[in-house]
């Protein structure tokens, strides 16, 4: 059974205290926002890092997507703050 790999970057990683994890594949119609809410409900660092979704951005299978995107068959989800390169 394939899972979903979640990657965390920048202060999201610092808050959660790990750079990623594999979870059981969520129901196909789960949105990224809904998954963030369920992760934040774990409390502790998760609540701290993921409790304010407006501060978060996401990439699904290495493409930037809005948080209301449905996860579907994606294999990799990344959660992070707005980017600050350049």
């Amino acid at each position: 059974m394939a899972g979903l790999d979640i990657l965390y970057f920048a202060w999201v990683r610092d808050g959660i205290g790990r750079d990623g994890e594999r979870i059981d594949t969520p129901a196909r119609d789960t949105s990224i926002a809904a998954l963030i809410e369920s992760l934040a409900a774990r409390g502790g660092g998760y609540a701290q890092a993921l409790g304010q979704p407006t501060r978060l951005r996401a990439a699904l299978d290495q493409r930037f997507v809005p948080l209301d995107t449905v996860i579907g068959d994606a294999r990799e989800l990344a959660l992070f703050p707005p980017v600050t390169g350049g």
Binding site: F9, A10, V83, T84, G85, G86
Partner: peptide
Amino acid sequence: LIDWLKSHAPFWKK
């Protein structure tokens, strides 16, 4: 390109 790199590439500065 530099405007787009700042806002559309996955880099974070600490």
